[in-house]
Design a protein around this nucleic acid. Structure first.
Length: 232
DNA sequence: ACCCAGGGTCATA
DNA sequence: TATGACCATGGG
């Protein structure tokens, strides 16, 4: 039982999941002309939405025209173009705010000059961009070493018994990053992708497949598993 | 007929 | 600080 997340624990987690699932090739994108900007768009569209629906919405956007901040701002029916991505009216407003910020601050040329903390603070100041979306953009569109503390991460770290208490975003993010002092963006990239893959394939919300879990060896859940979760 | 999905905002207490 | 309602489409 590991009661705190130290570098050794995090390395175990990463190595075990990497050996189990292999390279994840994130962040997936469709647009070969503007892949970095597609990540900004995808980061907003994927909020509380299945990725397959995000792919449909991005495909619709690509069929309508180039995927640029200027083009998205020019649509008067932007919400209709992203209908397949869940709450489309809200997301259309969020995308517009993001596009306006992107243009005003000077695009990637200017963004790439910002410190990571400044970049994330600016992103969070945008209506509809919270801490997780900001970190996803910082990591996957800008190559910054940030841990994306999403709902899957909380679920897994809570289940194995390495995290307890409040689900405050900054709490888990800083805990993980303190346990990875010398890691680069490539590490956090793969770590986040592996966590999602593990949550989807084994550590389900309602009925986790503990019998085939690569982390069972160091999981606090094993041995105190409630009825219905017995190892076969 | 539910529950969930690569969240965030706002109103309550 | 911490819940709950809301957004809204598509898959299991």
């Amino acid at each position: 039982m590991i009661d705190s997340i130290d570098p050794a624990a995090l390395e175990y987690l990463f190595d075990t999941l990497a050996a189990t699932y292999g390279p994840q090739h994130w962040w997936p994108h469709q647009d070969t002309d503007n892949p970095r900007f597609e990540i900004l768009v995808g980061s907003v569209l994927t909020q509380h939405t299945a990725w397959t629906n995000v792919e449909r919405a991005v495909a619709t956007l690509l069929s309508a025209g180039p995927l640029t901040a200027e083009a998205l701002l020019a649509y008067d029916d932007l919400a209709d173009l992203i209908r397949q991505a869940g709450p489309h009216r809200i997301k259309a407003a969020r995308l517009r705010a993001l596009c306006q910020w992107f243009i005003d601050c000077g695009g990637f040329a200017a963004i790439d000059q910002m410190s990571t903390d400044t970049l994330c603070a600016e992103l969070r100041a945008i209506r509809g961009i919270g801490p997780e979306t900001a970190d996803a953009i910082a990591l996957y569109a800008c190559g910054r070493p940030r841990f994306v503390a999403d709902a899957y991460a909380f679920r897994i770290f809570e289940r194995v018994g390495w995290w307890q208490g409040s689900r405050r975003y900054e709490g888990l993010r800083q805990k993980i990053e303190h346990a990875a002092p010398n890691r680069d963006a490539a590490f956090f990239d793969e770590l986040h992708a592996l966590i999602i893959e593990h949550a989807k394939t084994r550590c389900h919300k309602q009925r986790p497949d503990c019998a085939h879990c690569a982390l069972a060896e160091r999981c606090a859940r094993v041995g105190v598993r409630p009825a219905g979760f017995e190892v076969v």
